[in-house]
C-alpha cells in the first residue's frame, strides 16, 4: 500500500519532469520587411530555445527586433526565413489552439465594455459558459488587485489599472505561455515595481512560461531566468544570460552583488551591440 502511494507519487514526479519541455524553438529565424525605400532586416539568424517554466526577457535598444520576435512567436508576424515552433507545432497552429496569452504595450481595452466584460472577451470567444466566465473574471481581477472595479469602464481607470486589467484578461485564458510586450513600459516606477513583484509571484505559483520584452536592465534581471540581449540592424541575439538568482525573490535582491553582476553583463552585451554603429 505504502509502496503504491510512493510509486504513484514518483510517477507524478515523472510527469512533472516530462512537462519540462521545449515551448519555443526558433532555428535560424529571419524576417525582412519590404518598404518603399528598400528592405529592413528586423530579425536575422535567430536561434532560441525556451523551456517550459522559464522566464525569458528580450532586452535591447528600440529597433532591435525584440517586439518583432515576440510577434513571430505569437504568429502576428510571419518570418521570411528559418523555422519557428511553439509547443512542438507551427506558430499558427499554436495560435489557433490558443496556446498563449498576449499582453500588449498599451492596455487596449475596449471602451464600450466594462472591466469585467473586457476580461470576459476572450472567454466569450472561446465559448465558455456564463458560470465559468464569472468565476475566471473574479479570480483574475482579484489576482491583479482589481476586485471591486468590475463595473467601471476602462476610461474611468488610471493607466496602471488599465494595464493590470489587460493582464487579467490575458491570464483569464489560462495559457501556459504568457507573451508580454513591454507591459509596464508606460507606468511609473513605483507601480512598475509593484506589478513586477506580483508578476513574479504569479509565475512562481503557476509555473507558467513567460516571454517578456523590456528595455529596462533592472526589470529584465529582476524578473528573468534567462535574459536574451539583442542588437539592432540587423536584429540579432548578442548574448543569452542565465540568471542564478533564486526563483523566489523580493525587490531588495536588486542590491545584492549577484544581481549587480548579472546587470553588468547585460549592460556589456548591450554596449557590444552598439559598438557597430560608432
Amino acid at each position: 500500500m505504502q509502496d503504491a502511494i510512493l510509486s504513484s507519487e514518483s510517477s507524478m514526479q515523472d510527469t512533472k519532469n516530462v512537462v519540462v519541455s521545449t515551448v519555443v524553438e526558433a532555428r535560424s529565424l529571419s524576417l525582412r520587411f519590404q518598404t518603399n525605400d528598400g528592405h529592413v532586416d528586423a530579425l536575422s539568424d535567430i536561434d532560441l530555445t525556451i523551456e517550459s517554466g522559464n522566464f525569458v526577457s528580450f532586452i535591447g535598444p528600440s529597433g532591435c527586433g525584440k517586439t518583432t520576435l515576440l510577434r513571430v512567436i505569437a504568429d502576428l508576424e510571419q518570418p521570411t526565413g528559418g523555422s519557428i515552433e511553439v509547443n512542438g507545432v507551427s506558430a499558427e497552429q499554436a495560435r489557433l489552439s490558443r496556446a498563449y496569452g498576449y499582453v500588449f504595450q498599451a492596455a487596449s481595452l475596449y471602451p464600450w465594455r466594462t472591466i469585467a466584460n473586457n476580461v470576459a472577451l476572450p472567454l466569450e470567444i472561446m465559448g465558455l459558459d456564463r458560470k465559468e466566465r464569472k468565476a475566471r473574471i473574479k479570480k483574475n481581477l482579484e489576482l491583479v488587485n482589481l476586485a471591486g472595479f468590475e463595473k467601471k469602464y476602462p476610461w474611468q481607470l488610471s493607466g496602471g489599472m488599465q494595464q493590470r486589467a489587460s493582464i487579467a484578461r490575458a491570464l483569464a485564458v489560462e495559457p501556459d505561455l504568457l507573451l508580454m510586450d513591454e507591459p509596464f513600459g508606460a507606468l511609473d516606477e513605483i507601480v512598475r515595481d509593484h506589478l513586477n513583484e506580483q508578476l513574479l509571484k504569479l509565475w512562481d505559483k503557476t509555473n507558467k512560461t513567460v516571454v517578456f520584452v523590456t528595455h529596462s536592465i533592472p526589470e529584465a534581471v529582476f524578473l528573468s531566468t534567462h535574459i536574451v540581449v539583442m542588437s539592432p540592424r540587423p536584429g540579432r541575439i548578442i548574448d543569452i544570460i542565465e540568471s542564478n538568482l533564486p526563483r523566489d525573490r523580493g525587490l531588495d535582491i536588486r542590491e545584492t552583488p549577484d544581481f549587480l553582476s548579472i546587470a553588468q553583463r547585460v549592460r556589456e552585451g548591450l554596449r557590444q551591440g552598439h559598438s557597430y554603429e560608432d
Binding site: 502576428l76 495560435r95 498563449y100 475596449y110 470567444i125 485564458v173
Partner: peptide
C-alpha cells in the same frame, strides 16, 4: 492594429471579431 491583433491572438473568427470589435468600433 492592436485591437485587431488582440482578436487574432484569441483565434477569433470573422463573425466574432465583427460583432465584438469592428461593429462597436464602427458605431
Amino acid at each position: 492594429t492592436m485591437q485587431n491583433d488582440l482578436m487574432k491572438t484569441y483565434a477569433a473568427n470573422y463573425w466574432q471579431s465583427l460583432f465584438k470589435l469592428r461593429l462597436p468600433q464602427a458605431m
